[in-house]
Simulated scan of single mutants.
Amino acid sequence: MSDLASAPHETSPADYQQLLTQALDGVTACAPATAVWRALGAAGALGLLYGSSNTLGPVADPARLGTLLRAVDARGDNGTTLSVLVQAASALPILGSGRSGRPGAAPSPVVAAFGQALAGTAQVALAATDEAAAGSDLSGLGTEVRIEGDELVVDGGKRWVTNAGTAEYLLVLGRHHPGRHFTNFSWVLVPAETAGVTVTPATSHLLANSATGHIAFDSVRLPADHRVGRNGRGMAVFARHMSTERLAGAQWAVALTSRVLADTRERLLQRTVDGEPLWHNAAVRQGFAECLVRVAQLRALCDSLAETAVKGQNLSAGAVLKSAVGLTVDTVLARCAQLQGADGFSANGAQVIRAEAGVLGIGGGVTELMLAGVADMSEQLLAELRA
């Protein structure tokens, strides 16, 4: 396949921001996430997102990734932002890891799907969380990928898969050998319309535009060329790109909390007690300022760890970022919800946004497990802090 983008670094940050603005201006506020994805792809914003690539797939440009997520978050639809984030930070890079082929050969299904996703004409759902194990126990998953002659056979099930209800392609992590060793797992590209695939919508009104659902695979048969990358490289590729997803989650967290803080400040300026705006109350200002400092700290952490995270060679970067998100987002949104009072329960109020933002403390690793990982790496982190 050709390069991801033609001379991607020739596009300045301002030009990329303008490209995103123009792409999204034509998408109505109530449009589904598929329309947002199509607009981003048609404008070339997805192709420009990946500044380079290596043997484990495309490498996102962290500044452009943050700019993309801020632009999508500004629409105020958390389900759509989640839909874009999972694809841009995880699904496409993992799918891109399987693009190699013989020069001059016809494009494989993996190459074709990757090209369609970059163009925005197809969505890809990352099907990793398994019905047979807790989300944090990927090596315990029960979904199997068997090799039978020149076919792959997929059996099992996946839960809480973002974009499951709208994606043309399902990127499925399964085991091809028993046991928990990291070489026992591979990725398979499953077209959503393949016989034996059943998608059930998740029973939740939160993050509605993320099209989250559960997927069952009943003896799903595919040609062998639907395997993504080399056999047994599934976990290695996933681990390589997990830090990028955690950076993306932190970047979204900054955008989301900043948006809610700005809305909260405006509400406090407009509501009055004895003729004075609530914003002038010293206790209110102090609580708000504490939230602002927390978000500023998270932004600084994103900036300092961005390059390390996208390179995927330092596990501590992703763990620290994910932990910081868990420690920041709910604290900030809880205070905003309190400051908004009854207004916080409105459709766009902080109470509802806080509930949807809970995904940031769960998806990709729960905060408590991330903190345990940080503790395990404490000697290394303390040495870096004292260097």
Rank of each mutant, 00 (worst) to 15 (best):
G51E: 15
L95R: 02
A324K: 08
A342E: 14
G104I: 00
Q116F: 00
L138A: 04
S108I: 00
S83Y: 02
L269A: 11
V124T: 01
W160T: 07
P32G: 11
V295F: 08
G229K: 07
G44L: 04
E276F: 11
A375N: 06
W279Y: 01
A202R: 15
R354K: 13
A387G: 15
A71V: 00
R285V: 00
C291V: 02
D25G: 01
C30N: 08
S346F: 02
Y16W: 05
V188Q: 01
E193V: 09
V145P: 06
L138P: 01
D263F: 00
L333D: 12
V188Y: 03
A283N: 15
M1Q: 05
S6A: 06
K311L: 04
I94S: 07
G149H: 05
G96M: 01
T200S: 14
V374N: 13
G358Y: 02
V284H: 13
T200A: 14
A350C: 13
A289R: 05
R240C: 03
T331K: 12
Q87P: 04
A387E: 14
Q286W: 02
L222W: 14
V260M: 14
G96C: 01
D330I: 07
D218F: 00
S186W: 03
L301C: 12
V111S: 13
A296W: 01
A239G: 08
G373Y: 12
R233F: 00
G57Q: 07
T28K: 07
I147V: 12
A306Q: 08
G26W: 06
P8G: 02
S97A: 06
L152F: 09
D343S: 07
G287I: 06
T121N: 01
W160H: 08
S346Q: 06
E384N: 10
A282E: 13
T272Q: 09
R102M: 15
V188H: 04
A192P: 07
Q22R: 08
Q286S: 09
S97R: 00
A63Y: 02
L333P: 12
E245R: 12
A60Y: 15
E356G: 04
R285P: 02
H214Q: 15
H9F: 08
V352A: 11
A355D: 11
E379R: 11
S53V: 11
N281L: 05
A112M: 09
S100A: 15
S258P: 11
L268H: 13
S100P: 10
G57H: 07
G149E: 08
A296V: 03
S323M: 10
T244I: 02
S97P: 01
G213F: 06
A342Q: 13
V284A: 15
L40E: 01
R221W: 03
V190K: 07
A337G: 13
T328K: 05
A239Y: 04
V228E: 00
V352P: 11
A35N: 10
E10I: 07
R146Y: 05
A195V: 10
D77Q: 12
L46N: 04
V220F: 13
N231Y: 10
C30T: 05
